[in-house]
Nucleic acid binder design. Structure first.
Length: 488
RNA sequence: GUCCCCAUCGUCUAGAGGUUAGGACAGCGGGUUUUCAUCCCGCCAACAGGAGUUCGAUUCUCCUUGGGGAUACCA
């Protein structure tokens, strides 16, 4: 039997790093088993729905490099793949359950439900949730009220006794007492929209889903779904509940822990490879003694047995390390392509730069490749190549244990030497400067630091001689001249 | 409160009865180096606790403790 797995997001927010991790495992599971990966939009919550989130969903996965075999945009034999386009299906199925006596109309309004909840909170009862007030209603009477136009929801009849068993491919056998299952959850809302439970079960069955992979927060609704499958007389898919992703404080990952929307990572200059690689190791391992895995590697190596049961804490530092690794793996041309939008946004480069500034930027890539943590760091690091940096305060020029006069002297000497240097020969240039430092009785570093500050505007910068080679000796000499003047 | 799931270094993990408990990130200390970074080397650091089972338990069972999740006309 061919494996069919789906990622079924609800477009009620930006794609979250946690759900993307679930999507990744869905995707890998399908690919590793030669199965089919399906995207299904669960847009049944129209109060939180937004078109913008649908767009974000597509953008996110395109950027990450996932593709689906069936979905709203690519079609497929079991469509439509958007739940809002499938409403009649759910209504029919809910009514089917009523006819079978497995579900019932409930006429309880918000107020009564709120009161039930409040009473439960006040008393020391362990009973929680709906009190099954309408469960005992005469079906014919209820049907008559519906026919008369009264508003109602449809609730599933959870058996009052007995147990529901199911097997999780990861966690093994799980058995629930039916009295502990959510008491008669709503299947169809009063506005006729299905809830997650109904839509999910109906669609998973109709779309021939073979494996449900979702986060462990869904375990408590699994028995309820199983009861529904049984009520319909359907074979339930295999369940795989994935470990959750937590923040540093051990709670469900959320905004207060830092960035959570994939979009935020993307804008900050994270690479999709880094994100995928890092996230794939939250709750899963692939191969020992290796840290770097491409999406293609993961597709090949993924196995359900390598999944973990315990929740994983999201570690921003490790993600950052991965990002650096992937940045260093890029060719200069590729890196420039990635960094370009950031340079453009900072006003350092035109959107379609002329050959000269473009080659300047390209030449700068080897200088920053080892230094970038995020793509967004590039403009800060490279600004001095494109613009005249302001002359820093005098104390910035003064090496440790030296004074202002000495700094000016070293700076002037270093500047004077520059025009006669052949910067295509870095070694020779360095040798000359070392000799110059010796002649002046200065440490090499003390000769270099003021020069660096004068040329780049900062004590921290990419390698100096290569930087000068990029902007040209005349420009560098001019900057040094200005700095000498400022120091005198 | 009730129910469910989980438990190896600070973090992500390897380990599937016998290992000096391995790797990675972070931290710390060195080295390379014109600053910063990269890179290289080293160090620190874990089987939550208690009962069993067994010749032998990190590994199997139970209990305790701890952590997380669910308890919506959201998913």
């Amino acid at each position: 039997m061919q494996v069919r797995v789906r990622y079924a997001p609800s477009p009620t927010g930006l794609q979250h790093i946690g759900s993307v991790r679930t999507a990744l495992f869905d995707y890998l599971f399908a690919r590793a088993s030669g199965g089919v990966f399906i995207l299904r939009l669960e847009d049944t919550d129209r109060t939180r729905y937004s078109e913008e989130y649908v767009k974000n969903l597509y953008d996110t996965f395109k950027w990450l490099g996932f593709y689906w075999d069936e979905g709203p945009d690519v079609g497929g034999p079991y469509g439509p793949y958007v739940q809002s386009e499938r409403f009649p299906l759910y209504q029919a199925r809910a009514k089917e359950l009523i006819e079978k006596g497995m579900a019932y109309y409930c006429f309880c309004g918000e107020e009564r439900l709120a009161k039930v909840r409040a009473d439960q909170a006040d008393s020391d009862t362990s009973e929680m949730g709906y009190d099954r007030h309408c469960r005992g209603l005469d079906p014919a009477a209820a049907a008559a009220r519906i026919a008369a136009g009264e508003k109602a929801v449809i609730r599933l009849k959870i058996p009052l006794e007995g147990t529901t068993k199911f097997r999780d491919a990861l966690l093994g056998d799980i058995e629930w007492k039916n009295e502990d299952v959510s008491p008669d959850p709503i299947l169809l809302k009063s506005d006729g929209f299905p809830t997650y439970h109904l839509a999910n079960v109906v669609d998973d069955h109709l779309m021939r889903i073979t494996h449900i992979t979702r986060a462990q927060e869904w375990i408590p609704s699994a028995p309820l779904h199983i009861i529904m499958y049984e009520a319909f007389g359907w074979e339930p898919p295999e369940l795989v509940h994935l470990p959750m992703v937590l923040g540093a404080d051990g709670h469900k990952l959320s905004k207060r822990h830092g960035a959570t929307a994939v979009d935020e990572f993307r804008k900050a200059g994270y690479l999709p490879e880094a994100l995928v690689n890092y996230v794939s190791h939250l709750g899963c391992s692939f191969e020992e003694g290796r840290d770097i895995f491409s999406l293609a590697d993961l597709e090949r190596l993924f196995k359900v047995e390598r999944l973990n049961k315990a929740p994983a804490i999201f570690d921003y530092q490790k993600l950052e390390w991965y990002n650096g690794q992937y940045i260093r793996l890029k060719s200069d041309a590729d890196l420039l392509g990635l960094v370009m939008p950031y340079l453009v946004q900072a006003g350092l480069l035109a959107e379609a730069p002329a050959p000269e500034p473009r080659s300047l930027a390209l030449g700068a890539m080897p200088l920053v490749k080892e230094r970038l943590r995020f793509l967004a760091d590039a403009p800060i690091m490279l600004r001095y190549l494109f613009e005249e940096p302001p002359v820093p305060a005098p104390e910035e020029f003064i090496p440790k244990k030296l004074d202002k006069a000495r700094a000016a002297e070293l700076l002037a000497a270093g500047g004077a030497l520059l025009p006669s240097c052949d910067l295509s020969d870095l070694e020779a240039t360095e040798a000359r400067y070392r000799a110059e430092a010796e002649r002046l009785g200065a440490k090499f570093g003390d000769l270099m630091m003021p020069l660096r500050v004068a040329v780049t505007g900062s004590r921290v910068s990419p390698p100096l001689f290569e930087s000068i080679r990029l902007i040209g000796i005349p420009k560098a000499t001019a900057r040094i001249g200005r700095a000498v003047a400022a120091l005198s």
